[in-house]
Design a protein around this nucleic acid. Structure first.
Lengths: 216, 216
DNA sequence: CCGAATCCGGCATGATACTG
DNA sequence: CAGTATCATGCCGGATTCGG
């Protein structure tokens, strides 16, 4: 069966032929954090259903955007991860997420929230123009979840890993980060109330804040 | 009727709630060139059908991404154009198109091609890092169609308008540009064969070529 | 428990015909 | 030219079931 295609001699049309179907881009978004198991993706994409997830994974694998990797024993589980071509989509996804952030208010009780989404949200807040002064590796802990933030030139990469010897280590929780993201809680208040703690190179903090559009 | 939504507290999910349905991003792509009539969009998006086009236009208007404008007499036609919020999507669309360009070979006879798509394709080839030396306004003529290319810092804007006093004026046709885009025809050969002519500041040409990833 | 196949109701899509 | 109305088709979402 010939897959449905826009059939246009255009880069965008080709990209959307591969990635434009429902759930595909959100699936890739979750993989930006690093390799994920089927169950991880299922939990991170409420509503997708197992059949559709299977389909999308196959499509994206065929498109060369993700790979299926079987981890060696004793882990012996299979994970999905971005290929180099898939990783190139990071700035595009971040750009689109950045655009969407402006239309995201306070969360409604219908909306799904997770530490992963908040970590990715931080990635989308990133301002390349303010980034030069903040190059380095940072650790972020949201509840029990650990993330590693790499800032290098005008680029950012947030992944779900621990970081060795980060310049700054940030510890906070979901609700605090939601407040900061939606503007109902200032960074200063969060620091003052001990809801967000910072350890490491204190002098890097102002630059970090401005990189994420936050005032101290 | 509650519209179908991903219901996630995430900028990308919100963006895709608004723009992620079939045809929406391609429709915006066509509006990047400037205001378009219903018929223009219908012709530029083969396969969409009038009902779906109407739906998409309404959705995007509700989302605040486009506006419906009734031109004053004697033109007295209605056109659709991007709002400022919609215009902000240009770099995102260009980024995605750039990613897709790598997967675009020579055109098949199934694929729709038009001067508009080729002008947009040129926009997607743009390399911001090489752009500093090529700031300015350029005129591009593909057959009977005139485009204006604005390069400013790391940004490019291609629109379907004539340009006054461009630095360089380029005249070519569809098949020549297809050849150059797909790599089967070198810029030098096209120039030599008179299939592509350049007038204006000749010294700006090498910079221009490198901005679009072409060798002279 | 993970990953995937199947069935099915409902909605989105796409083509055509039709109207102001 | 700018849409509306209609209808066949196929995709999506949910539940269930099955193999490893």
């Amino acid at each position: 069966m010939a897959k449905r295609s826009y059939n246009q001699y255009c880069g965008l049309a080709v990209a959307l032929d591969l990635l434009g179907e429902r759930w595909s881009l959100l699936l890739l978004r979750n993989l930006l954090l690093g390799p994920q198991r089927f169950k991880d993706l299922l939990d991170g994409l409420p509503g997708i259903g197992t059949g559709l997830l299977t389909d999308r994974l196959k499509q994206l694998e065929t498109a060369g955007v993700i790979t299926r990797v079987t981890l060696p024993p004793p882990a012996a589980s299979t994970v999905y991860q971005l290929t180099a071509d898939g990783e190139e989509l990071r700035p595009v996804l971040v750009g689109l997420a950045h655009w969407g952030l402006a239309r995201l208010g306070e969360p409604t009780d219908q909306q799904f929230i997770s530490p992963d989404l908040l970590a990715l949200g931080l990635q989308a807040r990133f301002d390349p123009d303010a980034a030069r002064a903040a190059n380095g590796v940072y650790a972020l802990h949201i509840g029990e979840h650990a993330y590693r933030v790499d800032i290098d030139g005008g680029n950012i990469r947030v992944r779900a890993t621990t970081s060795e010897s980060p310049r700054v280590s940030i510890v906070t929780d979901t609700s605090t980060l939601v407040g900061i993201n939606s503007g109902t809680l200032s960074l200063a208040d969060a620091l003052g109330a001990g809801k967000l703690t910072v350890t490491g190179e204190a002098e890097a903090v102002p630059a970090l804040a401005s990189v994420f559009g936050l005032s101290l």
